[in-house]
C-alpha cells in the first residue's frame, strides 16, 4: 500500500512533466518565424537572459515595436493589440515550471558557455513552443557532473544550429571549463541549486 501511495505521488508529479508537447498560448507566436526565419536574436526579446536569473518574457511593447506597423489589425494579433490598448499584460502559459526549491539562473549558464539550445532544443524550428527536455534533477546532474561534455564557446551560445565538434568535444570542453572558471567540484553539490 505504501508502494502504491508512493508511486501514485511520483506519478502525479511526473505525469505533469510533458516533454515535446506544444503548450497552448493566448497568441500563436512562432519562434520558428521570428528567430528561425527573420533571424531575430534571442536577446532582442529576452533582454535579461545574460544578467538575471530569469529570461524575461517580453512585454507587449516589444511585440508592438514591429506590430504597430506590420500586420496591423490581423486577427492573430488581436490579443496583442488588446493588451497594448488596455495595459493588461498578456497571460502566457508557463512552459518550464521548475519546483520552487530550485534556484535556476539563466545568466550563470549563458556566461559559462551553455547554449540556449542545450536545454531548450531547436527553438528556431518550433512553430509552437514546447519543453524540450525533462528538466528533472537527474537530467540537470548529467551535465553538472560532467560540464566538459556540454560547454561551448561563448560566441556560440545563442547559435541555435551549433553542433559540437564531432571529435574532441571533451578536449574543447575541458579547455573551456578552465577558461570560464567553472567550478567542477561545487557544480554537483546540493547548495549549487538548492538553498
Amino acid at each position: 500500500m505504501a508502494l502504491l501511495a508512493t508511486s501514485l505521488t511520483v506519478f502525479a508529479r511526473t505525469s505533469n512533466n510533458k516533454v515535446r508537447v506544444p503548450i497552448e498560448q493566448p497568441v500563436a507566436f512562432s519562434h520558428a518565424l521570428h528567430n528561425g526565419q527573420l533571424g531575430l536574436d534571442c536577446r532582442y526579446c529576452h533582454t535579461s537572459v545574460e544578467v538575471a536569473a530569469a529570461a524575461n518574457i517580453p512585454p507587449t511593447e516589444t511585440c508592438m515595436t514591429c506590430h504597430s506597423q506590420i500586420r496591423v489589425g490581423s486577427p492573430q494579433l488581436a490579443a496583442v493589440q488588446a493588451s497594448w490598448d488596455s495595459g493588461e499584460p498578456l497571460a502566457w502559459n508557463k512552459v518550464h515550471d521548475l519546483a520552487d526549491f530550485v534556484y535556476f539562473n539563466h545568466s550563470a549558464h549563458i556566461n559559462k558557455g551553455i547554449g540556449c539550445s542545450s536545454c531548450h532544443g531547436r527553438i528556431d524550428q518550433m512553430a509552437a513552443i514546447w519543453k524540450n527536455e525533462p528538466m528533472t534533477m537527474g537530467w540537470c546532474l548529467e551535465c553538472h557532473r560532467n560540464p566538459a561534455a556540454q560547454v561551448r564557446p561563448r560566441s556560440e551560445v545563442f547559435n541555435m544550429a551549433y553542433v559540437p565538434p564531432a571529435e574532441g568535444q571533451l578536449e574543447l570542453g575541458e579547455q573551456l571549463v578552465e577558461a570560464y572558471h567553472i567550478n567542477e567540484e561545487k557544480l554537483p553539490q546540493c547548495s549549487t541549486c538548492h538553498r
Binding site: 505504501a2 501511495a5 508512493t6 505521488t9 508529479r13 519546483a99 520552487d100 526549491f101
Partner: peptide, 19 residues
C-alpha cells in the same frame, strides 16, 4: 506501520513545489 506509512506518504503534496 504499513498503513501509517501509506497515509503519511500519500499526504505528500506539491506544497514544496509550489510555495
Amino acid at each position: 506501520l504499513l498503513i501509517l506509512l501509506s497515509l503519511l506518504l500519500s499526504s505528500c503534496g506539491m506544497n514544496m513545489y509550489d510555495q
